[in-house]
Design a protein around this nucleic acid. Structure first.
Length: 260
DNA sequence: ATGGCCCGTAGAACGGGA
């Protein structure tokens, strides 16, 4: 069983890449962020034709999240949640579902723009609401995966130039503390359970040849409850998708498990 | 060097991203 998360930066633009990837990657659960697609124009039929059932919470222009389920490989989605409970928020940044025995939470965490800005305050509020809500979810689910674009680089080794980014948004102490609070709920960072190449990142700026120069950040994550983490056999970044023509600025993260 | 690039909404630049 493979579980993936990918910030597509516009589903409409990235559909060819997504469909080509789904055709070969054999991913069973795919969590998407920044679909930028209203629900009434979500390409559900096209994805169904490709073998995936869709659940989504979208809006025009900004944000938007989705969960794709590989038909015939994983069961139907239950107990769907389309917004972060406990927060009045018109922005579509969270979708959750239970599939077979797995609770899946897919989030597009706020970017925060700049430390000290209104958007930064909103990011910290959002993180706090998520943490509080997850406490209850974890009490009910032994197997839970929190995945998505966290917009947080948890440690300096997740940053191409820690000195340049020190204290900046995505790397600031309060954001990293919020990330550790999520781990403190009883979650493990699937990626760090395994030996990984140096300079492993999931996002690279479109500008400045950042990808070619390996100037990136690791801000997309898969966090797992401990037992689930114990069964995970690999966690990798699908860097090849960042090499394509007209790519997303993010690459997918994929966690592998024994047969479900 | 505080921008470079990309996306959506526009139907020209601009906000937002990270």
């Amino acid at each position: 069983m493979k579980l993936a998360t990918w910030n597509v930066n516009s589903l409409k633009v990235r559909m060819p890449h997504l469909l080509a990837w789904l055709a070969t990657a054999e991913v069973d659960i795919v969590c998407l962020q920044e679909t930028k697609t209203p629900d009434d124009s979500f390409p559900a039929q096209e994805l169904l034709d490709a073998g995936y059932r869709s659940h989504f919470a979208g809006q025009k222009t900004y944000n938007g999240v989705a969960i794709l389920l590989r038909d015939g490989h994983v069961g139907p989605a239950r107990d769907l949640v389309y917004a972060l409970p406990g927060l009045e928020d018109p922005q579509k940044r969270l979708i959750a579902a239970t599939v077979d025995d797995l609770r899946i939470v897919c989030g597009y965490f706020p970017n925060g723009q700049a430390v000290g800005s209104d958007k930064y305050a909103y990011k910290l509020e959002w993180l706090d609401a998520l943490t509080q809500w997850l406490r209850g979810e974890l009490a009910e689910s032994a197997s839970l995966a929190l995945v998505g674009d966290f917009n947080i680089a948890p440690e300096d080794r997740d940053v191409h130039d820690p000195a340049l980014w020190a204290g900046q948004v995505l790397c600031s102490a309060p954001e990293r503390a919020a990330f550790r609070s999520l781990l403190g709920l009883g979650l493990v960072d699937a990626f760090r359970q395994f030996e990984q190449p140096e300079r492993s990142y999931t996002w690279w700026d479109y500008r400045d040849l950042a990808f070619r120069r390996k100037m990136g950040l690791r801000i997309d994550h898969i966090l797992l409850t401990p037992t689930l983490g114990g069964t995970c056999t690999a966690c990798d970044i699908a860097v090849d998708l960042r090499r394509l023509e007209r790519p997303s600025d993010h690459a997918p993260v994929v966690a592998t498990f024994p047969q479900s």
